[in-house]
Structures are given as structure tokens and as C-alpha cells.
Design a binder for these strands. Structure first.
Lengths: 231, 231
DNA sequence: ACTTGGCATATTGTATACAAAATGCAAGTG
DNA sequence: CACTTGCATTTTGTATACAATATGCCAAGT
């Protein structure tokens, strides 16, 4: 369940195909709602239909695509409700991660997180949005790792994959970005102070802000997103 | 994501096979740690290997079995840590469900839940443990439905499937059973009073109690569970 | 002109044949 | 006698052929 006992490697053709598809979906190479032709994808990925279909099942389980019976698979198109719901659950999970992390965090962890925070502030100062996203994700992943709950980590990653595609499309304005960076600072402070309730609160509010930002962006681009991407 | 838009049916051979395997695993027909021979299962389920393997992928995504590369699939054997972690996440999710449910619950829902509660008390009075489990599950499912968060519902069901197998094996003693029934009564009261914080608290404590019960049972039967099932 | 039925095509679903990898056993060697 | 090494067997992984289902088009009828 935690993956720590896996002997050495964990690669296989279906997993590799799933990974390629995952990044294609998340980074926009495959538009939401696009239907996935098996043969075409077979050629593109250089695999046969059998492993590709297993990859489909994996991604469907992750919620990245839906499989209609006898009608193939298509990239999931999240409705505003799905986004609202997803972030609500993410907020609860992150809140739990915060509470658990406080109970297990070491001084070394704090040092590490402060270093990441410094990197984030640098990226912020240089207006480097991709770097910001990367470091942001690293911080949240780190927090989950500190929480030391394998099930939480797995659930978190799964949900995150689904929502990550959207965050890429959210246009973070300056004020919100400033605020997000400040929130991260407070979060690390709460963790260092071992204040679980405060950290939980901060994380939930942080996620709510992200939720609002993404929903606002979605509504602006709604027509565009809903119409596009079908063949 | 919420499944409400699915035209009519949702059956297919892989799904049917997955469903059969799921119940086999949950109800103990397949022991934890047991390795699944593809050909043998093909004959037992009357399907070919291709759909069976897709069923494997689905169940692996649900965390009900693990797939080792080139070494087949085996029923997951949850460690005590996995159980602890799983219930921790379940508690957080149920807590969220409680909060959300308070915001959306109707009087009709309350009537329905009270009816279920009455059934539960009857089962309890008659020492009908299977009925109790069934109704218990119905109540929690209902609460999740009222919460109206599709992502939460899906995540909940997935985790629940994993832990359900264990709950079957937990030997509920009289005192704990009494307490659980009483807790359900309080939960419905809190919901009727629209007291989200209280309901959240009750649910989390309720899950913690279950966690403790299952963990205690696991430790008692540890040797049995860990040794058994590998032919 | 619009709908409806049926046919041709394309696409998904399943079974199976073949390839590759792992497992277990036996024989040989230190 | 323990350990290793190679072979035979079993089991999993992948490709592909065949079947079933859906899709789109065209024609015929209202």
C-alpha cells in the first residue's frame, strides 16, 4: 500500500504508457473531452492495444479519463461542480496532513522546508511561474511525506493529478500570488511552532483560495473549454 | 466524475469480473496475500484473460490487490500501519461529509435516516450482526450522499472497499456495539440540529473507535493472518 | 423536406497465439 | 554438503485475429 516494499523497479509497458498519457493530459496535449482512438494512440506511443487498454483502466481509476462501454475512452472534462468538490476534499486531506505532520515533524524537516520556501520566494521575485508551481508542489508533497500516512499520500496524489491540469490553466494574478507565497510562510511557521490547529486552518484556507482562483478562471474560459477539443 | 450523466447501463465483462473478484476478496473467498493465477481465475469466472487483466487493473487501482511486474497479482495484505492510516483518512473524509451534509440536509433526509436508525436498533436488539453491518453502511452511504460531493463519495467508497474486508473480521464485543449504536443516535441528532462541528466531531470519534477495534482484532489474529493464505 | 430504415465502415471488446520472464528442479562443482 | 548454474516448466506480457457493437451515410417512403 505504501510502495516501500517493492523490490527494485516498477516499470512495465502499461505503466509507461499510462505515464505518457498522464503527462499528455495534464500538460494539455490531449484536450478535455477529447476521445481517444485506440489505434491512433497505439501508433503514437508505439505499443499494442492490450497494454494501452490497461493504461486506460489505470487512468480511468485515477479519474483522468472516462470509459464509455463500447464507445471508448475520453479525457475527462471537469465541470465546475467537480472542481469545487475536488478542492473541498483536497482541503480536508491537506488539513489532515497538517495535523499529522505537526505530530511527526523533525527539525531537519523544518530546515528543508525553509530552503524550499526560500526557493519559492526567489521564483516569485523573478516572476518565474513554472518554477513557482514546481516548488509549490514540492512543498505540499514534502508536507504529506512528513505526515507519514501512506494512504493519505496516495489519495492526495490521485486527486492532485486530476486537479493539476486545471491549475496549469488558472491565471494567477499578482495579488493572489503574493498572498499564496505569504501563506506558505505562515504554514511553515505554524509547523515549526508545532501548532496543528493553526496549520490545519491555514492549509484549508490556502486550498479554498486556490479553489476560488481556479473556479473563476474556469468560468471565464467556460465556452472555450466546453466547445473545444473534440477531434 | 459523478456518474450521473451515464446514459443507461454500465456493465461490461471486465467490470462484472471486477465486481465478482471484489466480493470474493471482501467476503474472504480470497485470502489476503493469496496470489491470483490468471488461468485458474479465467475458468472460475468464465472469462478470458484480457478482460480479467483489466479487472485486475481496476482492483489494483482500488487498492484491493497489488500487481508485481512479471509476477502477477495478489490480494493485498494490509499491515497494521495501513489500517491505521486508512482509518485516519476515512475519519477526515467522514468529518468533511458531516460538515457538508449539515449544509444541505433536508427534513426528508432526516426522516429517512431515522428510519434506518430504527432498523439498526432492531438489528442490534436481535444480535443480528450482518444486518447491523448492512444498515451501518447504508447510513454512512446516505450521509455521504447528502453531503452531495461526488469526489468525496468516490474517494470514500474506494477507501471503504479496502477496509471493509477487515471490518468483517473484527469481533465486535457487546460494549463496543452498544456504544456504536448510541453514537449513531447522536450523529443523527447533530444532523437534525444542523450542528456541523458536533457532527464532524462525532464522526471522527466514531471512526477512531472502529479503527481501534479493528487494530485490536488484527493484533490478536496477527500470526494467523500473516502466515495464512499463501498456499 | 423530413424522417426512418438498412447497409457499409469504423471502432471497440474478447479470445487466443506467441514471446518473454520467472520459478523450481536437478545435476555438477567447490 | 552447500552452493551455483543451466534447463524444463509454468506463468505472465504483448500482439493480433476475430466478433460484436456503434456510427454515419444513403436511399426510400411519408
Amino acid at each position: 500500500m505504501d510502495g516501500s516494499s517493492f523490490p527494485i523497479a516498477r516499470s512495465s509497458l502499461p505503466e509507461a504508457a499510462a505515464e505518457r498519457l498522464r503527462t499528455l493530459i495534464i500538460e494539455g496535449g490531449l484536450q478535455p473531452g477529447a476521445k481517444l482512438n485506440e489505434r491512433e494512440l497505439c501508433e503514437r506511443l508505439g505499443v499494442s492495444r492490450t497494454p494501452l487498454r490497461e493504461a486506460f483502466r489505470m487512468l480511468a481509476a485515477d479519474g483522468l479519463l472516462v470509459q464509455l462501454p463500447n464507445r471508448g475512452a475520453q479525457v475527462v472534462a471537469l465541470s465546475p461542480d467537480d472542481v469545487r468538490d475536488g478542492f473541498e476534499v483536497m482541503a480536508a486531506l491537506e488539513g489532515l496532513a497538517g495535523e499529522l505532520a505537526v505530530a511527526r515533524v523533525t527539525d531537519g524537516d523544518i530546515v528543508h522546508l525553509r530552503a524550499l520556501q526560500a526557493e519559492m520566494e526567489a521564483a516569485h521575485a523573478q516572476h518565474d511561474l513554472p518554477a513557482y508551481y514546481r516548488i509549490n508542489r514540492a512543498i505540499h508533497d514534502r508536507l504529506n511525506a512528513i505526515a507519514g500516512n501512506a494512504v493519505l499520500g496516495q489519495t492526495y496524489r490521485m486527486l492532485n493529478a486530476r486537479l493539476h491540469a486545471l491549475r496549469f490553466r488558472s491565471n494567477l494574478n499578482r495579488a493572489k500570488w503574493d498572498q499564496a507565497v505569504a501563506e506558505h510562510r505562515s504554514m511553515i511557521a505554524a509547523l515549526a511552532a508545532r501548532d496543528g490547529a493553526a496549520l490545519r486552518d491555514l492549509l484549508i484556507r490556502h486550498l479554498r483560495a486556490k479553489q476560488q482562483a481556479v473556479l473563476a478562471t474556469m468560468n471565464n474560459q467556460d465556452s472555450e473549454i466546453l466547445e473545444g477539443g473534440n477531434e
